[in-house]
Amino acid sequence: MTDPHGRDEATPVSAGSGLKMMSRATYLKEALLKNVFLLCAVMAVAGVALIFLFVGYRGWPVIQNPGLGAFLFGAEWSATYGKFGIAPLVTGTLVVTIGALLLGAPLAIGTAVFLSEIATPGIRRIVRPAVEMLAGVPSVVFGFFGLVIIRPIAAEMTGGMGFGALSASVILAVMIVPTIATLTEDALRSVVPGIREASYAMGATTWQTIYKVLLPAAKIGIIDAIILGMGRAIGETMAVVMVAGNAPQFFKGLGAPIATVTSQIVIDMSYASGDHRTALFGLAIILFMISMGLVALVRALSRLNAKRS
């Protein structure tokens, strides 16, 4: 969704058309309208600020209780005993995200290269809509599919119950494919066609052209894609909660149950109160800051890329 490349950030389409005679009334009306539009545009900024302030406001008391250090680095999350240390949840998120990227990123980049360099137009007409529709499948449907299909398979493979990092990573991997594939394809497409031809002209095979010329040329775009895919994996909730097993313990193996930041919020939110609920808002504000940080990173990289080329 967040696509730093497809957009033309240049001047407005009709800039410079201000050289016109108009009545004072028209002028006032135009000025008023412009400000209304501006107000609408600023809504996005206001929305982000509102989310940050409100979630932050509700989560802020974790600074006092349990205290920032005990919150961030505490090794135990147990509502019954009033322990709200998020380290196990953060590591859980880290584990499933890495797992999802290891499985999903190569698949997605492969799919993108396939789409932009190999597939015939006919095949592309099938594969590309499939990728886009994969992005539209609701996460609770993925979670349901994971619960009834992937989990039993993971149970066979790991000898456990199937709830845990393996199932969660597999489901997340499929879910991040559209994000990474679409953005990678955009990046590959924006590589100047000339160097492709040059490479082929020098006798390079398709594969040599892809990995020696195209992938390096689209490098930053691909990194952006992976970062945004990562953001999706970190923030994904419903699919994870249905297959992770939700045990707030440190990583014990692919087959052992695990809880993530997002899954713990869903499991607890229906009954949490007081400090417990505050801690959940604390988790939410951390998620918010992570996703905002990743967006900032992508924007910085894109700017770097734009400057270089």
């Binding site: 135990e76 147990s78 119950m161 097993g245 045990a247 149950p257 499991i267």
Partner: peptide
Amino acid sequence: RFDIGAVILPGTGQVRAV
């Protein structure tokens, strides 16, 4: 205390199925 390594499932039917 409950062992924190247990799988946590929010529903009866899922417990039975597993």
